[in-house]
Write a protein that binds this DNA or RNA. Sequence first.
DNA 1: ATATCATGCGCAAACGGTTGCGCATGATGA
DNA 2: TCATCATGCGCAACCGTTTGCGCATGATAT
Lengths: 341, 341
Amino acid sequence: MDKLPTIKEIAVRLNVSVSTVSRALSNHPRIGLGTKQRVQQLAKELGYEPNTQAIFFKQKKTHVIGVIIPYIREDFFSQAISGIESAAIEHEYTILFGQSYDELEREIKAVSAMKKQRVDGLIISLSKETNKYNHLEALKKYDIPVVYFDRVPTMTDSHKVFCNLYKGTIELVGWLFNNGYRNIAFINGPDKLRASKERLKGYIDGVSKHQLKVDMQLVETTDLSKEGTEMAMKKLLGLKKLPQAIITFNDYVHMDATQYAARNNIAVNKHIIFVSFANLPITSYTAFPPLASIEQHPYRQGEKAMDILMTILKNKETQEVLPNTYYTEELAPSLVAYKQL
Amino acid sequence: MDKLPTIKEIAVRLNVSVSTVSRALSNHPRIGLGTKQRVQQLAKELGYEPNTQAIFFKQKKTHVIGVIIPYIREDFFSQAISGIESAAIEHEYTILFGQSYDELEREIKAVSAMKKQRVDGLIISLSKETNKYNHLEALKKYDIPVVYFDRVPTMTDSHKVFCNLYKGTIELVGWLFNNGYRNIAFINGPDKLRASKERLKGYIDGVSKHQLKVDMQLVETTDLSKEGTEMAMKKLLGLKKLPQAIITFNDYVHMDATQYAARNNIAVNKHIIFVSFANLPITSYTAFPPLASIEQHPYRQGEKAMDILMTILKNKETQEVLPNTYYTEELAPSLVAYKQL
DNA sequence: ATATCATGCGCAAACGGTTGCGCATGATGA
DNA sequence: TCATCATGCGCAACCGTTTGCGCATGATAT
């Protein structure tokens, strides 16, 4: 394969210097019209395309941003990455992709790979295991800004975008209340997860808000496995007073819960109604879809994260480095009722 | 932020030349032990990490491969990309990500972005619209090898890996036959799709193989929309002799078909049984899961594609360029029966 | 004592561009 | 007529690293 045409080759052929060619191509005012035309003409003929790698190298930029997520198979994240991608394209950026599979070790490796590739910035949704942030702090040394989304860290000195699930849960409880449900149960996720804490707080505050007393017997947790969910359901169905409604941690839990209920002769969504947090696109095809769901806007979270990253990068260029400004974008979740009760 | 330590800085501090430092770090035999130690020691102290961008630039390599798929939201593709990623990690490669959304125009842009970034290779599953390949041929000029998977082109001078759905469909028909079903209907996808042609051929040959006569009244097509599928179902349910089994083009069609059937008082999977091609992970949670399904091994397809790409790249290094060797990997699909009939 | 060789290291080019500065040249104004 | 200035272009450094080659130096062989 013959070599790609370079600026140098054009220079030689036209008997001018490389600097002239470079400037001619970028329409520098100090280059004569004739020269410009000859250069641009020949460039076109040769099919010259600037070697972006060389330019990026010199400019210490890559026009690449890293994206690390737990699982691309989760619809939530594939939507998020699509949002990121669409915003990235607008800014002429491309995405370097990595999954953590919810493992800290993999996350560290992925971050390290991004660092090696000198991404201009990183967007990440943390793994469940992530409890320390050295690997991410390390990026500061390389001047790589990090924007977190959805699974965001607790530190305040970070850029982040997330959906306020505390409010979402309150809304969900409110919706149930307004539709006449009082005895509202809740299958939460693992205690240590931030997502669980938020939901629980929302549940408690939501219930209290309507002058109901909070009955912790109605609150169970699952480790998100099928078995864990079934154990939780077993306890709830064993209560003397059966719950009228069950809020599940997410759609995966929802599905296991409803299937278990059905197997135990509960008329799902009649006898007990189920509501959840939206993760899955096709719950409507499911045997027992949730009657209402909290939409967490993954696509928009992705877009927003990218937007924030872009403004950070622009600011860096403009030297307006405001090192102590941290962007936080809190999206309002929205309740989607699938059926009018 | 203070500058990152470079080889040059180490050189200055140690009063040696950059070349010595470079060689000392890579354990070159011609460098004295003492010097090596001092260099490596200082490198460690400074936290020196080689600038991979600079190295890649010099070596005309990026250690990045591009991956372009239609929709990451489709579970098939998110699995495929996971397979690619896992193989990539083993070879110290990272993935530049792009979606075509099944549009040729977007695919072209994505390819162009990959080209700009000088990926070392490209793995792509073509968009439905892709009927010409100039954008991909253009990569030859840049010496970027392309490996196709699943949605592969017709040209023979290309590397590809795919699942033989012709055989898969035959197998599906055979399974139905062996379980006593004779009147087997088929809702296929759009005629022009290669995937449709393969399935249709498989259907016809599969049916003939068992000495059944091929009744084209049993074959309908859908444009893959809900409405299209329902029209197809309407026709099939309108036949004087109702089919005993229906093969659907994929799980999305399956779901629309079964829901339509249920609404029209067909006892799904009893009155008429449904089988499909696996796309969705959670059909088991669905109201009417398919009783059997052809698994197309997206993860393995991804892995395989990456493996092929790697051997191509290795060969390039070794100068053993065999320009007219094209790798083709045809995976055998496997039939998964969800219930014993 | 001299040719030979291994050892240890530095020079400089190269990858493909960008860019500050300086040097001619001809036109302009005083 | 001479200083002044805009115009058009080239020189060379630079980004961070690798690598072919050459140059000393001291040891070994003859």
